[in-house]
Design a protein around this nucleic acid. Structure first.
Lengths: 201, 201
DNA sequence: TACTTGTAAGTAACTTATTACATACAAGTA
DNA sequence: TACTTGTATGTAATAAGTTACTTACAAGTA
């Protein structure tokens, strides 16, 4: 493959998505222009519109890539855990690992969440997060039924706190206070979260 | 005062800040233009530049207003609590109340956090959040010394989880899953957070 | 040949900021 | 009081730059 070979639309779409994710790691995703994306790909700006009809379509494809990747990671983590509570723990760590691997992802999600309610993109992100929360609530319910956590745990609140705990870690690393690869804060927060559930460690 | 009376720069500055905060409650703050602000104030776009030199100066003034307001609320909450742990509880509720009063605030903060590292605005937000976290860590340290919480609590992690818990609630209400005025999820998450500290309720 | 992928140039719409000019208002003066 | 004058606040128009998207044309590929 020469440096500027012609590529199929399929492979260019993947390349565009990967480029947006990569750019979002360092810049404000809302300020990433089609020219920026094209330059990073060594292609002219107009070429992008051979593979996506609009910029919004690009952003939608990016969000759907994020969903697919994250959900696959979470499912793997849950599946390879011995019990539901260990599954929650594994999902927590898998989520953090995923974000560490693609630091642009939380920025992209935040950017879409800033859109007005009517935006189809925002609704998509909304749907993803609601499903995630529901999955957590179900897992927490099972853990409660199996007496792995306190039987008076509010599973809805515990699902919100799970996502909040990850968010707090994301914010902390976005603020640059600590190296994003530091493990201690992650384990510290996870331990604290598990303590809130009253699980027997 | 007639409908379109002339105003002092001082009062116009306050009006501009209030307008930006109000607009941010419904739109993406990054997409709020000087024309939007001016329209909402029934003034021409150019008039804004009689009171602020640049748009960035407006955003900075908004962030500083947020800091002043939030910190005053937190200090009040902490001061009127009988002990340190109740103080943390009061700060949690005061923060949630403040956000409920000005729903645009978290969106504004997120928007500035998306800026590149070098941006003065981002650095300002960074500074505010680091101070907040440090204040929380200190309060948690005192609570630990007073045996109000477990003596093996990781105060740094507990500070991150405090902010994360609020963030989780903010996200949940931004996602519109529930009415932002609902008290139960707030209290549920707060209760869970306190449980993670092992405080005697 | 027929189709897909690419380029270079162009366009309409929009954004921040500036400019020339107008007007309210406070202070000083006849 | 009545009049002048200087300054702060406002408007309308527009400059200068950026953005997403289009179009005319070229070239690779089946």
């Amino acid at each position: 493959m020469s440096l500027n070979a012609r590529q199929s639309t399929e492979s260019r779409q993947s390349e565009i998505i990967a480029t947006v994710v990569a750019l979002a790691a360092e810049r404000n995703p809302a300020e990433v222009t089609t020219t920026d994306i094209a330059k990073a790909m060594s292609v002219t700006q107009g070429a992008l519109f051979r593979h996506f009809p609009t910029k919004e379509a690009i952003r939608l494809a990016v969000i759907e890539w994020v969903e697919t990747q994250l959900m696959a990671n979470l499912a793997d983590a849950q599946a390879s855990a011995p019990d539901v509570l260990s599954g929650l723990e594994a999902m927590f760590l898998a989520h953090v690992k995923f974000i560490r691997q693609f630091p642009g992802v939380p920025r992209l999600v935040f950017a879409e969440l800033q859109q007005p309610d009517s935006s189809p993109l925002r609704q998509r992100v909304q749907q993803i997060m609601q499903r995630y929360r529901q999955m957590l609530a179900e897992a927490l319910g099972k853990a409660k039924a199996a007496h792995l956590i306190r039987d008076d745990v509010d599973v809805q609140a515990a699902a919100v706190l799970f996502l909040g705990a990850i968010q707090g870690l994301v914010m902390q690393s976005m603020l640059g206070g600590v190296s994003p690869d530091a493990e201690e804060p992650v384990l510290g927060v996870l331990r604290l979260y598990l303590a809130s559930l009253g699980g027997k460690s």
